[in-house]
């Protein structure tokens, strides 16, 4: 079992990330934001598909190599490259923009 890449602060943040987007339902500013699986206390890790950009990962996640080596995340929320062009994989370094990477936030439909 590899050591968790996050430390106490990360775990705290991870717990807090569970509250992410949870806001008073009566607040019109907040309604658009509440995402599935992010309700307070759900403990679910969320992966957000950013339009033309990376995957944002929030929650009590752990990044590991195929050999089980820990990959330090360095922060509570990370952006994982999905354009393939980053120089700091698996993280995004913004290279997707210069390359004109295109991907909708919504999933591609089969066929």
């Amino acid at each position: 079992m590899p050591p968790r890449n996050d430390d106490a602060a990360m775990e705290r943040d991870g717990a807090a990330a569970g509250d992410h987007g949870a806001a008073p339902g009566s607040d019109p500013h907040a309604e658009a934001k509440a995402k599935p699986g992010t309700e307070a206390g759900s403990g679910v890790v969320t992966v957000t598909t950013c339009e033309d950009g990376p995957l944002l990962v929030r929650g009590a996640f752990e990044l590991v190599t195929q050999d089980g080596e820990s990959i330090p995340a360095g922060r509570a929320t990370v952006a994982l490259c999905r354009c393939g062009l980053s120089s700091v994989k698996p993280f995004c370094d913004g290279s997707h923009k210069a390359a004109g990477f295109k991907a909708a936030s919504e999933p591609d439909l089969p066929g």
Binding site: H29, T48, C50, L56, G74, R75, F91
Partner: peptide
């Protein structure tokens, strides 16, 4: 080095979650 990765995260949150939400709300 830190800003290469941190701001790749921050830019998504700032553009979409902060600014687009703010514009939608106000």
């Amino acid at each position: 080095d830190e800003h290469v990765q941190a701001d790749a995260v921050h830019e998504q949150i700032a553009a979409h979650d902060l600014c687009a939400n703010l514009a939608a709300g106000e």
